[in-house]
Simulated scan of single mutants.
Amino acid sequence: MKFIKYLFFGCILSIYGICNADLLEDRSNVLRVGTTGDYAPISFFDEQGKLQGFAIDMAKALGKHLNKDIKFVRTSWPTLSQDLKANKFDIAMGGITYTPARAKDFLLTSKVIDNGKVALVRCEYVENYLSEESINQASVRVVVNPGGTNEKFVKSRLLQSQVITASDNYVPFSMLLSNKADVMVTDLIEARYQSRLHMGKLCVANSTPFAGTSSYKVYMTPKTNHNLLNNVNEWLNETDIESIAKKWKIDP
């Protein structure tokens, strides 16, 4: 009878262990971090092909806090949510903006850094694009990277503009520089970085984000992993985010 009793409770514990993703995650000494690698200065590859940026440093710091090794997994903006749901990684870290849709499907951390949408343009024409109204014109060519909040903004608000969908997140900047597009609407963080990278060629047109676009960046975990979420939020509350942001000249 005792054997049957222990066997019964053993089965219950086994089923509970399979169902409880938090316990399964805690047994691993590796934290898989999904990132796009195309969003400087948050997550990008340098000229030598090394993955770096604000989110990469943050992930490494998180790994030390959790006493886990970090394994970076490449994803993309169009497939980010699908890849996380498919368990290709444990947490998504990068230029991820808080949205109600993401909050519905995933667990989102507390705020990492503030942000908002602005227009990036060629410097000589910056006076032409100081407002959303001046951009939302049939003569204005707006290039957008696919799969994220930039695309949602452009396709929901710039209904009069000529919208050009780029193949990836690198193309819009070269299109602006080569006069194949007039405006890119993107995050203030990325726009300021690109304006410094292309000093005197690319400029941020609006000094404050477009109305209704003030937002903040978060990290994203599956709905099942409350334990990881709590640990990340605890770490965010303790870590010196500002110093890492300053290293990458993030000043939103």
Score class of each variant (00 low, 15 high):
Leu31Val: 14
Phe45Leu: 11
Ile15Gln: 05
Asn237Arg: 14
Leu84Pro: 04
Thr97Lys: 09
Thr224Arg: 13
Ser214Ala: 14
Ala119Cys: 10
Phe210Gly: 05
Tyr219Pro: 05
Asn179Cys: 09
Lys201Tyr: 14
Ile189Thr: 15
Ala21His: 13
Ala166Tyr: 02
Ser161Ala: 15
Ile164Leu: 14
Gly17Asp: 00
Leu31Asn: 02
Ile113Val: 14
Gly116Ser: 11
Ser207Val: 11
Ala40Leu: 01
Val30Leu: 11
Gln82Lys: 15
Ala205Tyr: 10
Asp83Asn: 13
Asp22Gln: 10
Tyr16Glu: 03
Ala103Trp: 06
Ala166Asp: 04
Ala61Trp: 00
Lys104Gln: 15
Ser195Trp: 04
Gln194Trp: 08
Met199Cys: 05
Ile42His: 00
Glu151Met: 12
Met220Phe: 05
Leu84Asn: 04
Lys68Trp: 08
Asp46Glu: 12
Thr165Trp: 00
Arg74Phe: 11
Ser81Pro: 00
Thr36Pro: 11
Ser110Asn: 15
Ala245Val: 02
Gln194Ser: 03
Met175Glu: 04
Ile4Pro: 01
Pro172Gln: 07
Ile241His: 05
Leu177Glu: 14
Asn87Pro: 00
Glu124Ser: 12
Gln48Thr: 09
Tyr39Glu: 03
Asp240Tyr: 04
Asp38Glu: 15
Phe3Glu: 07
Lys85Glu: 15
Lys152Trp: 10
Ala103Arg: 06
Lys152Gly: 06
Ala59Lys: 02
Asp105Asn: 15
Gly37Met: 03
Gly37Pro: 08
Leu120Asp: 11
Ser174Asn: 11
Ala138Gly: 14
Met93Ala: 04
Leu31Ser: 08
Asp69His: 14
Pro100Ser: 03
Ala40Val: 01
Phe106Asp: 06
Leu177Asp: 08
Val163Arg: 06
Val121Glu: 09
Met199Trp: 06
Cys11Ile: 15
Leu108Ser: 09
Ala40Phe: 00
Lys50Cys: 05
Leu108Gln: 14
Met175Thr: 02
Glu124Trp: 04
Ala138Ile: 09
Ile4Gly: 03
Lys155His: 09
Val143Trp: 03
Leu51His: 09
Val112Tyr: 13
Lys5Trp: 09
Leu130Ser: 10
Ser76Val: 01
Ser167Asn: 14
Ala40Asp: 01
Ile189Gln: 02
Ala21Phe: 12
Ile15Arg: 04
Lys217Thr: 08
Gly63Ile: 06
Gly200Ser: 07
Pro41Val: 01
Gly95Phe: 01
Gln52Leu: 02
Gly17Glu: 00
Phe45Ala: 02
Ser28Asp: 13
Asp83Gly: 05
Ile241Phe: 12
His226Glu: 12
Lys104Ile: 01
Val183Ile: 14
Ile4Arg: 13
Glu242Leu: 13
Ser195Phe: 03
Ile42Val: 07
Leu66Thr: 08
Pro78Arg: 10
Leu236Ala: 08
Trp235Asp: 03
Ile113Cys: 02
